[in-house]
Nucleic acid binder design. Sequence first.
DNA 1: AGCAAAAGTGCACTGTATTGCACTTTTAAA
DNA 2: TTTAAAAGTGCAATACAGTGCACTTTTGCT
Lengths: 67, 67
Amino acid sequence: MHLGSIVKERRKLFNITQETLAEMSGVGLRTVKQLESGKGNPTIITLEKVADVLGMQLVLQIKSMNQ
Amino acid sequence: MHLGSIVKERRKLFNITQETLAEMSGVGLRTVKQLESGKGNPTIITLEKVADVLGMQLVLQIKSMNQ
DNA sequence: AGCAAAAGTGCACTGTATTGCACTTTTAAA
DNA sequence: TTTAAAAGTGCAATACAGTGCACTTTTGCT
């Protein structure tokens, strides 16, 4: 499961639209759409802005841990 | 602690140079240097390439977990 | 089914990440 | 302490991420 899907699922949990997420995070709507649909290659800052609004954070962890 | 520092620390654990990490990951040396020194705003793919070589992965998790 | 809202996409422009090169600074080993 | 290897940095070129706009497709509600 890629990062975009995780963002999308989490956003739906909050019952907000891509447009609202874009506004709240300060990221362009087009960028949010691309991120969620798995297109493109966002920068860390873009991903962090979006994740932050959704109460999530980007972390680097040792590989192959369950969940 | 930012992502660059985590990469740097992890790399030192493996006793390899930035140059070796760059070669192994397929990322430019200049980019590795910027990443580790906290300059710039890498893309997910760049960070994933480097993390992969170091046996790490980028994950999105619910915020405010310990560690 | 009908329809409005939400999501996905092609295009084009702007800004910036990636990169190599050449150089300086720092580190660590003899 | 010397000094070679490793790390940090300014500059410039290229590739591509971020974005708005206009449009199509999908979703989900009545």
